Computed example of a mutant assay.
Amino acid sequence: MADMNLNADECLLTRMQEMSLDYHFTVEQEVGSATHAFFSFNGTAGVLRIATINEAGGWKDRSTVEDMDLAVRAGLRGWKFLYLGDLQVKSELPSTFNDYRNQQHRWSCGPANLFRKIVMEIAMNEKVTLWKKFYVIYSFFFVRKIIVHMVTFFFYCVVLPLTIFVPEVDVPIWGAVYIPSIIAILNSVGTPRSVHLLLYWILFENVMSLHRTKATLIGLFGAGRANEWVVTEKLGDAAKNKPAPKFFKKPKFKFGNRLHMLELGFGLFLFFCGCYDYVHGKNKYFIYLFLQTITFLICGFGYVGTIIPTSS
């Protein structure tokens, strides 16, 4: 079933999420269902047969993506999922940057952590074909849940900026610009009304790839926060309908609570690379680097999403 986001227009952050989720449902889920390939059950909106749950071994709490865990085990036992794009259910998106970061940590760390725990179960399964095992292990998990985050982050936020200091390394423009641009444009097909936000969406996704890469590595190696579950608070229409108190203090913003040092650090790194390229470079990468720097700094200073004042 498709999600109908109630608060997609609340702020720019929710618009960015709408673009990503619309692509996920309109393309990934639709294609997976139409081709009868494996695709993950979404816990937000779905119906499972009791027999499916029982045959798959029931719900397990070994990861923070229990819905994906159940879907994989059910798929290994021959059950198929059907996506109904014309049937929509209401949902809310996290509208503060901290809540969105926590959600993305769980969504990136959980699949990676599940992969390390279930990969041998998939490989040793005797009820599905070798091709389906390969598809689930390589395409569904390894490429889409692990590699995609790392490639985005390391290439655009680490490798490409560092090539500026090594003139002998020449990154072809088709690899740095053309192919990624085509992929980004295709990602906007699910949300035509937001196509004008595509440039900022790309820059923002590069920022989030930092957190997704970090979360993926934590999940892969089973580090301290691998099983951390932080409830994603969502304001949506609930905050608008909440009655105002009769007596209240003027809310204050605690600026220090909004600082994100990781984003600020990478913003300064990219700014330095951009300045060096402006002076010594030939490929004019500084244009991208300065735009990406601005995006990192906006996120680092907490000026993205809804800002919730404190009452103290």
Score class of each variant (00 low, 15 high):
F97C: 11
L162M: 06
M208Q: 14
D170V: 10
N102D: 08
N113V: 02
A74D: 04
E126V: 09
E121C: 05
T191L: 03
S312K: 14
N206G: 02
S33K: 00
N7C: 09
G43A: 04
F155D: 01
Q103F: 11
Y288D: 06
F271D: 02
G190M: 06
I146W: 10
G190V: 04
L162I: 05
H105V: 05
S194I: 08
R144Y: 01
F247N: 07
F25K: 03
P251V: 08
L262M: 14
V159A: 14
A34D: 05
Y156S: 08
V195H: 14
G85D: 09
N42C: 13
V189K: 06
G78M: 03
L259Q: 13
S20E: 15
I307M: 05
G274T: 10
L84S: 06
P94A: 07
V119T: 10
K250C: 14
F296E: 10
D67N: 15
T191P: 02
T26G: 12
A239L: 15
P94R: 11
F153Y: 04
G78D: 04
I182D: 04
Y285N: 12
M120P: 02
N187T: 13
K132M: 06
W59R: 09
I182H: 02
F301L: 14
C299V: 12
N241G: 06
N257M: 06
I50C: 06
G274Y: 08
I202E: 09
F115V: 11
F140H: 12
K90P: 13
L162S: 04
Y288K: 05
L264M: 04
L162N: 02
N98S: 14
N227M: 07
K234C: 04
A45D: 05
M124S: 11
A51I: 03
G236L: 00
L262A: 14
Y288E: 03
